[in-house]
Design a protein around this nucleic acid. Structure first.
Length: 844
RNA sequence: GCCCUCGUGGUGAAAUGGUAGACACAAAGGACUUAAAAUCCUUGCCCGCAAGGGAGUGCCAGUUCGAGUCUGGCCGAGGGCACCA
């Protein structure tokens, strides 16, 4: 048997595509398609997650090219970030060198996959030619008031004297120093994303091709809530505490006030030693929402009492509490323990009064074990009694407004986007600090503000700040000396507009050319990991709006028309007898299970988890490609699971994919070698009808991302062809159909397809390869199977032509022996008939 | 803690409210072969020689002629939580 040499054909066609430069540009300019996969962080080598992401994208890109679209399919590198700095420090090299080396390795590896990427458009965010435009955008945003400077908390490592990323804080301690991490306030730069909060929320509705779950996550993240501000008078003092609540209906259940430690009224407590201690304790909780939510709720009782606005004689204590955040609402709440779990926990701890004011409709239970947050009838609430929750809300808000002690207010959970990072390997923020305290942008002619090459990363603190000369500069307008901003930008900024840069990646004069922008944007299909569902996608949506805000030639609001989020690649985990992780290469199969290759001892097989270095459950794509070929690797990763779910990598699976590649190759050869014979029109028609049906089905499946099902159908087509080799089909029919079939496989396994097609059609590919056209009229000749049920249970089947009438169907159904048996001695009460689907006899 | 998603054979999975398990992996049996590899065929819960019948999609209710699919409650697993990317 003629064996396919996958390594050889991989190389052959990759060279062919490379020389052709993927220039599929002779297509219809009026039909554009921008296909984009999330660009990778150059961490060293590509991993299976990348393979999956880019295999999915390549199917879509190639399919659209074959459909005649002018396709933009670029690739770049998200090349600023923390790992480069860490690696550089460990190996004593420059982050730039480390990054460049990784990019070159990974680019080579990606090319081994045979992707239809136009490498002429390659960009890298750490490239001066990229980040100078980002600095320009920053200045534009600043001039339009979209950049602000304010104080926030960071994780501070007191030993390293650096700001730590959340992932660098382990159990409240710095990952290197092991010192207890403190919260520290710093002045930082922010993008005013909250300005667009309402718009970002509302426009989610226009994103028809986004997964519902991603939209829901963004909606909850933005967190619009309708509530109300209420002023509480402080007893015997001339101050008010303004609280924000989404549950004004529970005002009669209010038994305390709680304010954030950063609330202005706390200023007066600064001279109390107890308060300082309390504040210190609060600062030991991390800055993540998770840490704050899980931290024990603690409070500091002030000597202030607040006057309840609706109960004359009632005074309630004012606490400072660690779970109240200054940047949400007003930084103060009223606590209603009966109907808020956090308030409940707090009240239990400090033995505060708990007054139920909402009674659930369906219980008589009087014992309170926790907060009740559902609907019900209002009780213990004076004029609100007997109202429902929603009615009570309306009533109380109008009452509050009438009394002028507060007003309706909409709040968003979404905070402004902090973009300052006290790190070296990022885009320098193009601002300078003048002697008089003003902070101004640099002149655009001075861009790019380049990172210095000579940097000492072993020095404690902010590297740019510690550089001997870099920050010293002059203000161009006046010539006075000035100090550069030494913070760099969050790497999310880099990835918030790279898809725009791809429209005109070599343009030096400005970030993008408006003409190419309006041709290509928005991205028609964006593909990437679901872990980016909120931040990256939301920031990109903000950036698009901010750019539009600064440039009236930009008409696009939403950067990504279609979004697809793929699942992770998982693998079983293995541990040796000492509980140490083993990689799949370090084990071998035995009769009982698996054993270590090193000492032959038994291996414990653990659950399949996302591939990660720490668990060593990694399979290297490059070595897989070398053994099985690019097509088999792509094929397997697409075939085994729906693309939006996790997939389990298995050696058996990729080996099976390889066998299938061989099977198609064999089929192709059998058809080429077959002697012509007299055809039977009946056989031919049957074959062509069935194949035609598959053709429509597969287009549909690809367009809806059901790539695993599309592959299952391709297996079925293969069997169809193999079965028909022994039937009476003309060679013309077989060869023509096979060529169509090979084209269907092309987006998935392009190397194999080009090789087969070059044999079938015996020509070189100077023209575009078109997706095969199906016949609508042939679709009408399909056979369908009608299910016959008695009382909802399947009792028979009718194989028949399409669109059989109810009358005919019932006659046919009653002819079936088993149906006769089941209807015997019974009276038919009702017939259910669904065309091309089902007959259901309902009997007495 | 909060938000989101997912639970179907030994495994990955398929199924516009209409035949549950397509397709594939693994396993068992068989064919070819001196043998192995490769390839191909068959089987796949329970009763039955078969025809056929029964149970069955995490658990408990409900809607429907009909529920894996819709509704409510529960249990379990995974993702995100603003300085990892």
């Amino acid at each position: 048997m003629n064996k396919i040499n996958v390594v050889e054909i991989d190389k052959k066609w990759q060279t062919f595509w490379f020389n052709k430069k993927n220039s599929f540009k002779n297509t219809d300019k009026n039909k554009k398609f921008y296909c984009l996969e999330m660009f990778p962080y150059p961490s060293g080598k590509i991993h299976m997650g990348h393979v999956r992401n880019y295999a999915i994208g390549d199917v879509i890109a190639r399919y659209k090219m074959m459909k005649g679209f002018n396709v933009l399919h670029p690739m770049g590198w998200d090349s600023f970030g923390l790992p480069a700095e860490n690696a550089a420090r460990e190996n004593n090299l420059n982050p730039s060198d480390w990054t460049k080396k990784n990019i070159s390795t990974m680019k080579h590896q990606l090319q081994l996959l045979g992707l239809s990427i136009d490498w002429d458009l390659e960009i890298s965010t750490c490239d001066e030619e990229y980040y100078k435009h980002q600095q320009e955008l920053f200045i534009d945003f600043f001039n339009k008031g979209l950049v602000i400077r304010k104080e926030t908390y960071v994780n501070w490592d007191p030993v390293e004297k650096t700001v730590l990323a959340n992932e660098q804080v382990i159990d409240g301690r710095g990952w290197r120093s092991n010192a207890l991490v403190e919260r520290k306030k710093l002045y930082q730069w922010f993008f005013n994303i909250s300005k667009f909060a309402d718009e970002l929320l509302k426009d989610l509705e226009t994103l028809k091709e986004w997964p519902e779950k991603v939209k829901l996550m963004q909606k909850n993240w933005i967190g619009k809530s309708l509530g109300c501000e209420i002023n509480f008078k402080v007893w015997n003092k001339d101050v008010d505490i303004k609280v924000f609540t989404t549950r004004p209906d529970t005002i009669f259940g209010a038994t305390f006030l709680a304010v954030s430690v950063d609330h202005p009224i706390c200023k007066k407590l600064e001279n109390s030693e107890d308060f300082i201690k309390f504040k210190k304790k609060c600062s030991q909780v991390g800055t993540t929402e998770e840490a704050i939510a899980n931290a024990e709720k603690i409070g500091f009782k002030t000597n202030l009492m607040a006057q309840h606005p609706f109960i004359k004689q009632k005074k309630i204590p004012v606490y400072v509490a660690n779970f109240i955040l200054m940047d949400y609402g007003t930084g103060a709440i009223f606590g209603c323990p009966a109907h808020d779990q956090r308030d409940f926990d707090f009240a239990k701890k400090y033995k505060l009064e708990i007054i139920p004011v909402v009674k659930p409709e369906d219980t008589t239970d009087t014992e309170i074990n926790g907060a009740y947050t559902g609907d019900g009838k209002i009780i213990n609430s004076d004029f609100l009694n007997n109202f429902s929750v929603s009615k009570a809300k309306e009533k109380i808000v109008s009452e509050i407004e009438k009394k002028k002690i507060g007003k309706k207010r909409i709040t968003f959970r979404l905070k402004d986007w902090g973009v300052s990072r006290q790190r070296y390997w990022g885009c320098p923020i193009p601002m300078i600090h003048l002697n008089n305290g003003d902070v101004v942008p640099v002149d655009k002619s001075e861009l790019p503000i380049k990172l210095p090459k000579d940097i000492d990363l072993n020095y404690k603190g902010n590297p740019l700040d510690n550089h001997p000369t870099w920050k010293k500069t002059k203000y161009k307008k006046t010539g006075e000396s000035a100090i550069r901003e030494t913070d760099t930008l969050d790497t999310f900024v880099d990835s918030s507009w790279y898809f725009i840069r791809f429209c005109s990646p070599r343009l030096s004069s400005k970030p993008f050319d408006e003409k190419s922008f309006s041709y290509w944007m928005p991205v028609d299909q964006y593909i990437g990991g679901v872990e980016h569902a909120i931040l990256h996608l939301l920031y990109s949506r903000f950036f698009m709006r901010a750019i539009k805000f600064c440039n009236n030639k930009v008409k696009v609001k939403e950067p990504f028309k279609g979004l697809f989020t793929q699942g992770m690649v998982c693998h079983e985990t293995y541990k040796d007898k000492e509980g140490k992780w083993l990689s799949p290469d370090e084990i071998q199969k035995t009769k009982e299970g698996f054993a270590s290759k090193i000492d032959g001892s038994k291996v414990k097989v653990g659950p399949s988890e996302a591939m990660s270095k720490s668990k060593k459950n990694i399979v290297d794509p490059e070595s897989m490609i070398k053994i099985y070929g690019a097509d088999a690797v792509r094929w397997f990763i697409l075939s085994d699971s729906p693309p939006d779910r996790d997939v389990q990598w298995s050696t058996e699976g990729v080996s099976a994919a390889h066998k299938f590649i061989q099977r198609i190759w064999n089929l192709n050869n059998k058809i080429l070698d077959k002697k012509d014979e007299k055809s039977d029109t009946g056989d031919e028609k049957k074959f062509l009808t069935k194949f035609n049906e598959y053709l429509f089905k597969i287009s549909d499946l690809i367009e809806n991302f059901h790539l695993n099902v599309a592959i299952a159908k391709i297996y079925e087509i293969t069997s169809l062809f193999e079965d028909n080799l022994t039937k009476k089909l003309s060679n013309k029919t077989l060869l023509e159909s096979q060529a169509k079939f090979i084209k269907i496989i092309m987006p998935f396994a392009p190397h194999l397809s080009y090789e087969c097609l070059s044999k079938l059609e015996g020509k070189n590919f100077y023209e575009e390869i078109q997706w095969p056209k199906g016949s609508k009229s042939l679709l009408k000749d399909q056979e369908i199977t009608l299910v016959v049920q008695v009382n909802g249970k399947k009792r028979g089947l009718i194989v028949t032509k399409k669109d059989l009438s109810e009358k005919e169907a019932l006659i046919e159904a009653k002819k079936i022996e088993n149906i006769k048996k089941n209807l015997k001695d019974k009276k038919i009460v009702k017939n259910i008939f669904v065309k091309n689907k089902i007959i259901n006899f309902i009997t007495t």
